[in-house]
Design a protein around this nucleic acid. Structure first.
Lengths: 206, 206
DNA sequence: CATTATTAGCAAGTGGAACTATCTAATCAT
DNA sequence: ATGATTAGATAGTTCCACTTGCTAATAATG
């Protein structure tokens, strides 16, 4: 398959395919001459993954490159995998490092064993800070409930990782972690709608 | 307080404050002359909220404007509020409308009462499509567990909405829905880390 | 074999988003 | 009255994810 067919099959414009090649998101095809290369089914699948990461996953090109590198790495061993996957994932931090104190206090309260400098801790800390800056109170009870729900999900996520193949496991963790996020968020919103509809939520006629 | 002090207090550069004024994210101050205006504490707080929405919340300027308009609207009545809040929230869709069939099938299975054309349904549908495009299998069992966790959170979210003041309620729903999202996502990742650490997750020595 | 289409690879351009800088005329602070 | 500050407007900047336009080489077709 040549580039134009690859473009047709994947629904990605030729120019964009070339761009992804340049950005090393998509591996080069097998060159058959100075101006031609062959692409296979794996390229079609890879483009599907790339579009999913960039679109729904909301990743930048450079983050996607890191994530895909993790997916490709056959050396990635075991428990480090989740760590590697997570550190390849986007942190959306950007600005100064937030105060990790509150976040660590919560983690201690829940007895969670996590790396002290895990990027997710920074994200949590920053999110808590943002809530505070926005004047939104976050009592422990609320966070505890969120933590419990998150922990149930985390257990299920980890339990489902296919243990027979490291390559598949990395794929599973990286993609599952990232692409299930919008699923989770939209389900939460839909659940809010459902609950509020069920309660026929109304004000006492202001 | 004049603009330079407002900028100092909030940590937002003067030029950016002016930009937010232009974009109608921040209400104008009380003008004291043709070239001067007074700002108050509410402006400082509002800037905190704006930065939280734009930064941690990941909203665009135009989406933030819609969200803030919802927060400001004292008319917004009751159960419509959650709907209004949600429709003001970002959909991150952008491209063509996805096939809603699968999403609706799940919602029917769960017996959730949601608006057929709720934006969250589109987000869910698109996320499911992205998973499929990425070659990631999402069996019903997995989604069911996610739905159950999400529904628990949704119940708690709705139960905590302060019913005594419509204005506060809108604030709570909009900010809570948006700014707790990164909290939830980071907690899920941390829970994954915790679970995988506990299991001393290892391969059988490849 | 001649002609047309396609391709790899590269450089430059585009459009949107979120600021950031500059300027002017008015006003304030001392 | 002299320097600092401000509102308001316009223009410029930076970054990002493409997109366009090229060239020289190769492939497909009649």
């Amino acid at each position: 398959m040549r580039i134009s067919e690859l473009a047709r099959r994947s629904g990605v414009p030729v120019g964009t395919v070339k761009y992804y090649l340049r950005e090393e998101l998509l591996p080069a095809g097998e060159p058959t001459s100075a101006t031609q290369a062959q692409y296979g089914e794996e390229h079609v699948a890879r483009l599907g993954l790339i579009r999913a990461l960039l679109g729904t996953g909301g990743l930048s090109i450079s983050t996607a490159r890191a994530v895909l590198a993790a997916v490709d790495d056959p050396e990635l061993s075991a428990h480090d995998m989740i760590g590697a996957a997570h550190s390849a994932l986007p942190t959306m931090v950007g600005n100064e490092r937030p105060d990790l104190g509150a976040a660590h206090a919560h983690l201690r309260r829940w007895g969670w064993q996590v790396h002290h400098d895990s990027p997710a801790v920074s994200v949590l800390a920053q999110a808590l800070q943002a809530l505070q800056a926005a004047g939104f109170d976050t009592p422990n009870a609320l966070l505890d409930r969120y933590a419990r729900a998150a922990h149930e999900l985390g257990e299920q996520d980890v339990a489902e990782v296919p243990m027979d193949s490291p390559v598949e496991a990395v794929r599973f963790v990286v993609i599952g972690t990232l692409l299930l996020e919008p699923v989770l968020l939209s389900l939460r919103r839909l659940a809010q709608e459902d609950v509020s509809a069920r309660r026929l939520f109304r004000w006492p006629d202001a």
